[in-house]
Nucleic acid binder design. Sequence first.
DNA 1: ATGACCCTTTATAAGGGA
Length: 259
Amino acid sequence: MKIATYNVNGINARLPVLLDWLEQESPDVVCLQELKAPDEKIPKHEIARSGYNAIWHGQKRWNGVAILAKEQLEIKEVGRGLEGEPEDEQSRYLEAIINDIVIGCLYLPNGNPAPGPKFDYKLRWFDRLAKKAKQLLDQDVPVILTGDYNVMPTEKDVYKPERWVDDALFRPETRKAFHDLSAQGWTDAIRKLYPDETIYTFWDYFRNAFGRNAGLRIDHFLLSPHLVPKLKNAGVDKHVRGWEKSSDHAPVWIELEKE
DNA sequence: ATGACCCTTTATAAGGGA
């Protein structure tokens, strides 16, 4: 079973790239972030025509997350949004059960400029996610928490770490929040398989960042303990970042052994 | 230090992204 995550940076602007990638790589489950579209503008017919069921939590202009699964797989939605801040209207979390696995699709706030109210919101959102994550671990079921975490967990995950120390994606508070979340008992799938390799999932549109491989690793898969022995492979579809009209992120994927 | 680029909008300049 192949599960992918992809920050599309506008699902309508990205539709041709998304459909081409789905056809080429044929992932079983896909978590999308940054739809940048309200529910009524999600291209649901095009997605269905490509052979995928989908649920989505859209929002006008910004944010927005969706979960796709091949049409023979049932998607049972079990949650949208995180508890703890009822006034929060940003669409950043969607949760479903597919093939008896809980899939949490998340788009963590960017948090810049830091310090400031946006950074405070990021850290609060991290805290709310950590509470959700702990609840899921306590249920003792297979869980995947995947998406755009907007965190480079270590210096290995940044092309020039010294330039990013004051950035919301790399500040000590942010890295500590990711570390503390992981320490609940989650496994970073990419680092489990490739502990020392330089692996990026995002390259800025500016300054020929992709051509220079000046990237960041900010899209992650966290696996609950049940799933770690089933992890067979993982990777980044880096070539998609080089396609015409691509997102600034590339798709990231894992393969789990079948039951 | 700044801005480069891309996406969105009851758009046509500005906010957000990372």
